[in-house]
Nucleic acid binder design. Structure first.
Lengths: 207, 207
DNA sequence: TCTAGTACAGTGGTCAGACCAGTCGTTTCT
DNA sequence: AGAAACGACTGGTCTGACCACTGTACTAGA
């Protein structure tokens, strides 16, 4: 630990320290962090302060702890975080509308990105997968979002998807033909066609 | 505390317990939670476990603690949370491109939303502000995003804006006419016009 | 009477140490 | 060689202690 422990709470400093450590050592998901006792010694803080920092990160889903083994960096998915936050803050009705609206628009953005950035080969491959495989709506659009290679959209979409599913909306059935057609529209590289195809797939009238 | 402390970690149970407590007593932002020592007694757990739970919730931005006073429920904003998550996640190099891409598309989404949801009156008011006031690009688009009344987009855009600005890109000058024209295009309610107007304002060729 | 000052109880912040309960690798016994 | 026992290490939890800070009730002085 570096400076005055007056201004900032120690556990917050530890969180930052961990972040730096991960960056410096270029630690990836699955890698092991130092033990609580070692961190406590290295940073000259009490073990309980270290634990407060670790527990917070754990609740965020950023790390994973296994008794007897150690603490590991986790592949961030956002699952438990979303669940926690949704029960805490997702009461008002506007939030619900925001989630639906935002998820749809981001999906549309990703389609648009693919329309501009994906190669014909990628789209053809995607199409043959869509024609043969079994998949849910989430799985289909996960592929769409992944294809954009935009990690930001990926993170946001995953979170939104979890929120969306926690809303328990009525599921609208989508046929395989509709998914395939959506990809066909991508291949045409026509912006308004893809927009309409998506709207129709989502059974949207104007919004 | 209710059941076996075998399966679930105590601090997680405490988080749930707090959630129930907030629900039962219908506590609102600003209200005070029981003290750490009292919670520790009431739930028959150590104070350190209580603290681990509280610290986690604090890092999530759900509660606020003031030394010498107590722990209070907070008006959730989500800022620091997203901030934290993004600094953890956003380390790779493509992140830069992702930020730019995402910020632009979300701005476009918000324009699109306004095109469908805002009233003529709102847009006229916006226009007269744009014609007379002094503002930065951020201030202009903050208004655009706010106008959508979509809190999710608002939060995402604010974070994106901060990151975007931290990238130290060359600023492209935008004249007041261009902003006003953008609003004019909104008023026409024409999707492709607004898209082109935005592209031109951002000096984008195709992407 | 009113005010300024003080004392105290309560609260969060932090630490040290203890013990339990798992995991894993090594050693030892069969 | 295989199984059992051991020991080192890890996280999980509790207790008690001390500090710094806040709000309040009480008290001494004006």
């Amino acid at each position: 630990m570096s400076q005055s422990r007056k201004d900032t709470k120690i556990y917050v400093e530890i969180v930052n320290e961990l972040r730096l450590m991960i960056e410096r050592k270029n630690l990836k998901p699955g890698d092991k962090l130092p033990s609580e006792r070692e961190l406590s010694e290295r940073l000259n803080v009490g073990r309980s302060s270290v634990r407060e920092a670790l527990r917070a990160l754990e609740l965020l889903g950023l790390i994973e702890t296994r008794r007897g083994e150690g603490t590991y960096i986790r592949d961030y998915g956002g699952h438990q975080l979303v669940q926690l936050l949704s029960t805490f803050i997702l009461q008002d009705e506007n939030a619900k509308r925001d989630i639906i609206e935002t998820k749809y628009l981001i999906e549309l953005d990703c389609l648009w990105l693919n329309l501009h950035k994906s190669s014909d080969g990628q789209l053809q491959e995607f199409k043959s997968w869509a024609e043969t495989a079994h998949y849910t709506d989430d799985e289909f659009f996960l592929k769409v979002v992944r294809l954009t290679e935009n990690h930001l959209f990926l993170r946001m979409w995953i979170i939104l998807k979890d929120y969306y599913n926690s809303l328990q909306l009525d599921q609208i059935a989508t046929s395989k033909e509709e998914y395939v057609q959506l990809i066909d529209m991508l291949i045409t590289r026509n912006e308004s066609l893809i927009r309409n195809a998506y709207k129709s797939l989502r059974k949207l009238s104007k919004n």
